[in-house]
Amino acid sequence: MELLKIEDLYVNAGEKEILKGINLNINKGEIHVIMGPNGSGKTTTANAILNNPNYKKVRGNIVFEGENINELKTDKIAKKGIFMSFQSPEEIPGISVTNFLKYAKNQTTGKPVKVFQFKDELKKYMDELNMNSKYMERSLNVGFSGGEKKKNEILQMLILNPKLAILDETDSGLDVDAIKTVSKGIEMFKNSENAILIITHNTKILHSLKVDYVHILVNGKIVKTGTQELAEEIEESGYEKYKKANE
């Protein structure tokens, strides 16, 4: 069943035209990957889906479960079940990981959160992700290393349990062990009722995950769509071929 549909999407960041006509369909149970060189518009795609006010949609539609979400506010989009893992998550002093997640869970589900049950769940996921449980009481992302921040994003994904998870450069800057942990988190999350969109410029994380579709994004356009083999091709010969074709 269709979850997300992007139609002919044009997006500007400031004055600059970044996305120049993107089309994408994601169904339940699928894992999609968008790959592309730096500056091709990968992060813009994620921000546009979540309607970051710093990115302006010039044309096109984003439809989630049959509803146009172009103009929906970010929190409403999140409540619909879309999650975004940030490339560099913001540091928010004074709000603990636990309180933040508890409140977010309450907002996304619209139900009161049972404190003990919630803490047990949080503890379980943190163990799985090799996160020190001390982090539960620390301020959100403040003083976290790059790897800890990324794990914290995956933790939030597991707790909030969205229908569609967009993972923006979740694998960048991580060592081999951390990538394994993050992949494990993604596998724990994945089921036939949800979908994942992975945004990345390298192929490391794809070694430990089975993906359905790979899209190559160059200069604001998807220039090729394929399967896992396409990622392998990029790993060997890079984006040069596609860059040239698009010039």
Binding site: K73, T74, D75, A78, P93, F100, T108
Partner: peptide, 24 residues
């Protein structure tokens, strides 16, 4: 934006940041 992407409204996101600012 980060906080809102977790399903929290803009007003509450701002209030959260302000409370966090006052936390010390």
């Amino acid at each position: 934006f980060y906080i809102m992407s977790r399903g929290i409204s803009e007003e509450e996101a701002k209030a959260m940041i302000v409370r966090g600012f006052a936390e010390p």
